[in-house]
Design a protein around this nucleic acid. Structure first.
Lengths: 211, 211
DNA sequence: AAAATAAGATACTGGCAGTAGTCTATATGC
DNA sequence: GCATATAGACTACTGCCAGTATCTTATTTT
């Protein structure tokens, strides 16, 4: 039953220096999320520990648990904070095939990046918690559907596609298949020829069929 | 440094009764796999423990580790043992749409079953181990491609599809999209109307486009 | 200035993967 | 049939980590 208290802030684990003042509320929350983000891309989701985050943030675990109910919840919050806020520019080459390939390459880059890896690990670990899955899905699916519908709409205006192709299901076929490659193959990155295969064997014929 | 030895086989954890003879080699391996299978469908992959399997098999953990290097490896082996050996009958209604829907429903049933859940959890936990992922992929992808190509070939013979549709990419589009639903939505089962959407908005138009 | 709130520090619980060492039943070799 | 090698059985242990509890103390609120 010996409990020692040397006091002194920042005496945690050598990760963070002593601080003059004690952070609270939003500022502290911010610091924790930043620490979690750094840990995520340094060691990855599976190796991220709450002790690690706490040490890096210069705080204690229970402070983290006061805000997020679990490791997974913290990481979901941190992941969302990592996402680029700015809406990306949508390819517009005047040719549907080029636009689609450009979109798919971008998706491939994202999924093969550390962020993509983290996303998949996180998503897998969350499956038992529908609430948290929903949080995620919104962000992911919405982010894709819009741009793909846009390049399809432009193609339709050029006569490259029929208006019947302008459904979310058709529009996101290519990314959906790409995502599937990752799920099944568990590879670091999907090679270019698979991207071309998806575009030429599935996406383009399908879009043309909806004319 | 007190080490006690009461001896007596089967004194493990009350799970398995004492055994007259000591199992070895193949028989023991079989018993362990059977125990793992039972644990898998009783508690699921995330909650399966090596202690649990050992107790149920009436053996000790190190005996398991002598055969499989890790919990994941054991479960992969057990999972493969669970798969039905008999090749399934392929739907043949004389109508491509009906065949495709039947195939997709079957896939949906499989994926929403406990086995499907285990498969996804396992696959997710394995991603860092390319060797083991490959083991899996063979089994899964091959199992789908054949039947889908068969129903497509029959459709082609009836003039419902062109020979250009007879590629693995096109043939498996529907299951691939279904798998994607599970990955993204994290639901227990995919509703019937999504299956119809996949068939009617993607699979059929695509196949017809390849005529 | 007193009371309330929440941060900080530390220790603890409990579970589990994987390892080690010792004993002993069975198989194998002579 | 006996000696030796192999590997199963048992127990214990290490190390790691999620999540909890408790106590002290800085800061805010009243």
């Amino acid at each position: 039953m010996t409990v020692e208290h040397d006091g002194g802030p920042g005496a945690a684990s050598g990760e963070a220096p002593a601080r003059a003042t004690r952070r609270r509320g939003a500022a502290l929350e911010e610091a924790i999320l930043r620490a979690a983000i750094e840990e995520l891309d340094e060691v990855g989701y599976p190796s991220l520990t709450m002790d690690g985050v706490a040490a890096r943030a210069g705080t204690a675990k229970n402070v983290i648990y006061r805000r997020w109910p679990s490791r997974a919840a913290l990481c979901v919050a941190a992941y969302r904070r990592m996402l680029p806020a700015a809406p990306e520019d949508i390819p517009d080459t005047g040719d549907l095939r080029s636009d689609a390939l450009a979109m798919l390459r971008r998706g491939n880059d994202r999924m093969s990046s550390p962020m993509g890896k983290i996303l998949r690990e996180l998503l897998a670990d969350i499956q038992s918690d529908p609430e948290r899955v929903r949080e995620f899905r919104e962000q992911l699916v919405r982010g894709n559907t819009g741009p793909w519908l846009t390049i399809l709409a432009r193609a339709a205006a050029r006569g490259e596609a029929g208006p019947a192709a302008l459904t979310p299901r058709v529009a996101t076929v290519a990314v959906d298949l790409l995502r599937n490659e990752y799920a099944i193959n568990g590879v670091a990155t999907v090679p270019e020829d698979i991207l071309a295969e998806i575009v030429d064997q599935v996406f383009l014929p399908l879009v043309r069929a909806h004319t």
